[in-house]
Write a protein that binds this DNA or RNA. Structure first.
Length: 426
DNA sequence: TCTGGGGTCCTAGGACCC
DNA sequence: TCTGGGGTCCTAGGACCC
């Protein structure tokens, strides 16, 4: 038997061990590194674009950040404007405030909590940092946004010890020693269970779940704990008197299919039984890029024409800049509108060639906008570019006769976008 | 006083082609 | 003149996630 065969045979006997790692109150914890004097206080991160902390820093320019008194920070009750909470510290969560809650509602629950705006640059810096620490220990890492990853422990030396707990401890300790941040991990046979397990001992906890534990530890949980069952599915499940994951598991697969559709019903049945074969995906290409903004006040297409037009153009320029910076081009240009009643509309248009050009995007987006009834006031406007390929890919560089034809047609069919004779806004 | 911004994936109908 | 089925692309909306 060759060495290869031996290692292969050994690999076959290994149990799949997947970890889910979730940073604890990530956005807030990053701010607390800067302002340690706020540790233990109710702090909320979120809200609008105003740089509250820059004002504070300017006021106390002579003091190090860590010596600015806590009393200098703005209170939630004094907050004005739109926006939601991104993260609340555990002290703030005691008041019932949490992620995605509107700022105004949060202000009623925790008026004396402190508010800080999101510092995306700082957050992204720490995000890259903690992920690089993980990759040095266990290379198979799947990105799930700024503050979460899945990690495949299966083939990592020591990844099987105590079901993965030893490696989880090492990662947790390394991240804390180097960044000062804490995280929680769940280790399980697959991503679905690992994701649930990482919540079991939050914050700064580790939880190991085996296949045989599904009945005891997963089935008692509410249906909403399954990653993929959201508010709508939860309501429907409750109407059918299914409250826990075990309740779903007790149903016939066909019954779930009848009630939730072929794909979703079957998936739900598998999920309730803890079955999930999805691999840890370490690399992926973006499908779309977008920019959107909610206005300070609702705007009307006719009455606020100039303001809206400027915002629209700026959004197109931002998406174009994002595409160019990251080296992508796309051929489906789309817009998103949210009206004052929160109804949302989207329109898109696939053009004959790939582009990352702000003017081309602006033109196509303008065409989309013409197809929407703009009598209602708007609270949000967005621009998206989809069907992306790499700018240096063959698909983009190959100029096919089809491409030539459609762009020629476009340029003939649509003369001057900002034509004087068509005084419509867009 | 409601409800951010950036994404992915799925569904379903119609167009169009073979 | 009537009658097919399959495959792919496009578009709009919606659920869900971080």
């Amino acid at each position: 038997m060759s060495v290869n065969q031996i290692t292969q045979n050994r690999a076959v006997t290994k149990t799949r061990r997947i970890a889910h790692l979730d940073m604890d109150a990530f956005f807030a914890s990053v701010e607390l590194l800067r302002y340690p004097q706020l540790k233990g206080l109710a702090v909320v991160i979120g809200g609008g674009r105003r740089k509250v902390d820059e004002i504070i820093r300017a006021q106390y320019a002579d003091l190090p950040l860590s010596e600015i008194p806590a009393s200098a920070f703005p209170l939630l009750k004094d907050y004005v404007g739109r926006g939601v909470i991104t993260t609340a510290t555990y002290a703030a969560r005691q008041f019932g405030v949490g992620s995605a809650m509107g700022m105004m509602k949060a202000a009623r629950l925790a008026p004396n909590a402190l508010v800080l705006p999101v510092d995306f640059e700082e957050v992204r810096k720490y995000s890259r940092w903690f992920k690089s620490i993980i990759r040095e220990i266990a290379p198979q890492v799947e990105d799930r946004g700024v503050d979460e990853v899945y990690i495949d422990f299966t083939e990592v030396p020591g990844g099987q010890r105590e079901g993965g707990r030893v490696l989880a401890r090492l990662i947790q300790k390394s991240i804390h020693e180097q960044t000062g941040l804490t995280c929680s991990l769940g280790v399980a046979p697959n991503k679905l269970i690992a994701k649930m397990a990482s919540e079991f001992n939050k914050p700064n906890g580790i939880s190991v779940v085996h296949e045989k534990d599904v009945q005891d530890r997963i089935w008692p949980l509410p249906v909403r704990k399954i990653n993929g069952i959201g508010p709508k599915a939860e309501i429907k499940l409750h109407k059918l008197h299914l409250m826990t994951i075990g309740d779903i598991a007790a149903q016939e697969r066909d019954w779930l299919v009848d009630n939730f559709g072929k794909a979703y019903g079957a998936w739900m049945h598998d999920a309730a039984w803890g079955r999930d074969e999805r691999p840890v995906v370490t690399e992926s290409e973006p499908v779309s890029m977008s920019r959107e903004t909610t206005f300070e006040r609702d705007l009307h297409a006719a009455r606020d024409r100039a303001e809206l037009g400027a915002i629209f153009t700026a959004l197109c320029e931002q998406v174009a800049a994002d595409l160019q910076r990251k080296g992508y081009v796309g051929k489906t240009i789309g817009i998103k509108l949210r009206f004052d009643d929160f109804q949302t509309a989207t329109r898109d248009l696939t053009i004959g060639h790939f582009t990352a050009d702000p003017k081309a995007i602006r033109q196509a987006a303008g065409q989309c906008l013409k197809r929407v009834d703009l009598s209602r006031r708007l609270r949000l406007l967005g621009v998206r570019v989809g069907r992306l390929v790499k700018a240096d890919s063959e698909e983009n560089l190959a100029v096919s006769p089809v491409n030539l034809t459609s762009s020629a047609i476009n340029s003939v069919a649509e003369p001057g976008l900002e034509d004087e004779r068509t005084p419509q806004l867009f």
